[in-house]
Nucleic acid binder design. Structure first.
Lengths: 229, 229
DNA sequence: AAGATTATTGATAACTTATTGACATCTTCT
DNA sequence: AGAAGATGTCAATAAGTTATCAATAATCTT
């Protein structure tokens, strides 16, 4: 796990202490301060990954600080506050905060909300869910399948079928399961469709389609996609 | 303000109604359903900007749905739940939710949290303002596209369409995604517009528009802009 | 307000994919 | 080995999708 740096802006010493202990235990690096003025200096010099801001700062409203940060950065900001009223929550969120937690708070919930906020910022490129199986690669987000590094041209049903195999490698899948998943409920008995498409897929990915390496027949049962990469 | 599309997954009719009325009033486009199964179909076909998920869905736990969505998308997910216990909140956030609101909730707070979550996702581009793809170059800041070093004369829709392709090269984009992004919410079914504009774009950038090198057709699905420069 | 540009619409041709059926080949069981 | 059933193969046809272009409507310019 990446070493995140969290900046705490909190003027209540006991809460600050609690946060520091918690973050030490969970191995988040952290820096802290108790005033808006120092907060901005620290923020600029340390470039943290997430801010925890107490709204009740003595030297000015925390919302001002949030707005200032938002002028220059998209860093996640989690607000801690003793004030529970709706208006305050809305003002803080609209000032630029990403989350708002009221005191007293559960440490575990705070940590979960921090994780949720950190997750979003890292890996700014879209999640690309890729599965590699020997010479075959699927990128679900791009809806793309590569065979020997070349893009494989597939019809919609061919794509869905191969995708289903790639998501279930080395498992025997019954004809019914495959038909239901790829064609939909009601097609469970259309075995001929399946035969035809297995045939075209094999032509596209098997060296020798009478001795398939990937799509194995389980006679009487179904098929199994073997992945020995 | 950009027209956002919010997807509601909620099986309590009265809460669903409340959300729908609220979103209508605040001019958020919205689509809704009351089961996990339909939710995924709607999600894939409409590509919403934010999800509101009720955790207590009757046909399966909402957390499963959240995980499924997270496999393919970074769309903001706000959970609504009657359950207030810490464990449930943490599980939902770690499944991939971005925020967790307990019922009964304040409509205004919900709206503020939605704004906070939407804010983050937009404006993701505009970081680097130039993209080069083979013979095609776009300068986003100058709103200018060069083809073979010459300025390409494009109508507004042509520009938006080609820009969307250039920001998403080598990905299969569904008709719905493209129509929503270029024409806006509500145009998802106007396939003929898309065909017409694909045709004019091809005439401008393809050597041989019957054998396109850039804009490939994915029959039954959409188009893909190939960038093999 | 006229002229130019751009967007929308509809008709039809060209193409791609899905379905079907006929027959060959392979497996399994006795 | 031979029969019965299961699977593979392929080509024909049906169904569905996409490309193209021209006409009309809407919008923008000056």
């Amino acid at each position: 796990m990446k070493n995140y740096l969290i900046q705490i802006i909190e003027d209540d010493p006991s809460v600050k202490k609690l946060l520091e202990i918690t973050f030490r235990e969970y191995e988040f690096n952290h820096i802290s301060c108790d005033s808006k003025k120092n907060a901005m200096i620290l923020f600029l010099s340390h470039n943290p990954d997430l801010l925890i801001v107490d709204l009740g700062l003595s030297d000015g409203d925390g919302k001002e600080f949030i707005k200032q940060v938002r002028e220059i950065s998209k860093v996640p900001i989690v607000v801690l506050s003793a004030r529970h009223d709706e208006k305050e929550i809305i003002l803080a969120l609209d000032a630029g905060a990403d989350d708002y937690i009221t005191k007293p708070f559960s440490v575990n919930e705070l940590l979960a909300r921090i994780r949720a906020n950190l997750r979003r910022t890292t890996n700014d490129t879209a999640i690309s869910s890729k599965i590699v199986c020997g010479e075959i690669e699927i990128d679900l987000a791009a809806r793309n399948i590569l065979f020997k590094k070349e893009q494989l041209k597939l019809t919609p049903i061919e794509y869905e079928l191969l995708k289903y195999f790639l998501l279930n490698t080395n498992k025997t899948l019954t004809h019914q399961q495959i038909l239901k998943e790829v064609w939909g409920v009601g097609y469970q008995n259309e075995m001929q469709y399946l035969r035809t498409y297995i045939n075209t897929l094999r032509k596209k990915i098997e060296q020798n389609s009478t001795r398939p390496n990937y799509i194995k027949t389980e006679s009487g049962i179904g098929y199994r996609f073997c992945c020995n990469g």
